[in-house]
Design a protein around this nucleic acid. Structure first.
Lengths: 228, 228
DNA sequence: TGTACATCAGTGAACGCGCGTTCACTGATGTAC
DNA sequence: TGTACATCAGTGAACGCGCGTTCACTGATGTAC
């Protein structure tokens, strides 16, 4: 006797609906206060129903985190897909700009993946880390292309210490041979963009900056001058 | 009839003790889960006693935030106070290094002031913002000294757009005339340092970096090459 | 085609928990005379 | 010096709240014959 298939038509799509409402509530008051009961309430559903879809609150949070990384990865990919491959500065700028754009638009998603870890929640690394790595792929690809074209001005950076070279070597092996300087520059490009975005999202940019985007634009342009 | 003075000797210093335990608990499990009852429990004190010292949980949090900013400001000041005034690169490096050092040592304090805002807590800007600005003073001072010595390589940065110039001009007025480029460079120096530190503290640096300090060192040295 | 039956998504009550805050109190302390 | 008294830091009980999770259930659905 085969198990009866779910009657998809009978009921609203709860699997998706739960996540939709969860995102909505996260957008309103942050991930730390996300509660199954509040989600159920807004769905006009009994709280235990959610357990038919997610075995626990933490599993729902994990699913949301993965979705957030995928959403970011997609935004980054899209930002460069229509730019000619050889327009290096434009591509790098577009990535940085899209990163901030996504972060500002979905600031609570951004904080969910990059902010203070949620109390009493531990992300399962084997699920969460691949998603995080995927989000970095477009950036590494763009920098790799610049490097391959011989346009990356590596000499403008402080020399690689042996210790750092060793660590980057390990990373190189794991990525199937991407040049250490590419990995390094991707990492620090990310950290520079991340730093400004994080300050903006958490409200630490002095209020004189009516439009933090201008600050961001100059920083990105400075990065271009420095990298290429 | 004058009010009776508190009997300081009779009891332990609860005003300080409350904060000490609060810091301890924040260090253990983060600021988001800080609870008056838990603090009282660890102090072997009835929970309502705390209300003799702080009118509400939020006021305690505010006091902690101010302390955290002061602690950071102090660490930054100390890092440069024994360096000769004309050793510009060393001073800038020391500031960045001390920033990371403080952040790594007191990561939960760092997250308290720079991480995801605590849910259902709103910091009173008039208390919190001056403390935050004070923490920036040593950095601005060092960059100002470099600028005054004519050693700041402003031409290496992307040109100032009119919009950004206007915003920096407002900031300049509020600071009593500090040159806009000084303010700008202080802001982006901070954001670069902050970006790497934040990634490290939230566990986003790839695990291949056994010692993220090396990553940080190269970034700081690169900043020095670029700034001076 | 009709009927007995297995499935299982959703339910409502309940458990135990911890929280911030209020309230009337109590009892040691220091003061005024 | 001794005593009546005002002070007020700390107390214990209580309020109302929301949470994650468990449990036995129910009833519409689809299936096997």
């Amino acid at each position: 006797m085969s198990p009866r298939p779910r009657n998809e038509a009978r009921l609203p799509d709860l699997l998706g609906g739960i996540k939709d409402i969860a995102w909505k509530q996260i957008a309103e008051s942050g991930a730390a206060t996300l509660s199954l009961r509040a989600v159920a309430r807004e769905l006009n559903i009994a709280a235990p129903s959610i357990y038919n879809y997610y075995p626990s609150r933490d599993d729902l949070v994990t699913a949301l985190i993965v979705d957030a990384y995928n959403s970011l990865a997609e935004a980054l990919s899209e930002s460069v897909e229509n730019l000619p491959a050889e327009q290096f500065p434009e591509r790098l700028f577009a990535l940085g700009w899209a990163y901030r754009q996504w972060a500002v638009t979905y600031s609570q998603r951004y904080l969910l993946i990059f902010g203070t870890p949620i109390p009493n929640y531990h992300a399962p690394d084997e699920i969460t880390m691949p998603a995080a790595e995927r989000a970095m792929v477009p950036l590494v690809a763009v920098i790799q292309a610049i490097f391959a074209a011989g346009r990356l001005r590596v000499e403008r950076f402080a020399p690689l210490t042996p210790e750092l070279a060793t660590m980057l070597g390990q990373w190189q092996q794991a990525t199937g041979g991407i040049h250490p300087e590419i990995l390094y520059l991707a990492q620090v490009f990310w950290s520079r963009v991340h730093g400004l975005v994080m300050l903006e999202i958490t409200g630490q940019i002095p209020s004189f900056f009516d439009d933090p985007a201008e600050l961001f634009r100059r920083e990105l342009n400075t990065i271009l001058i420095q990298y290429l």
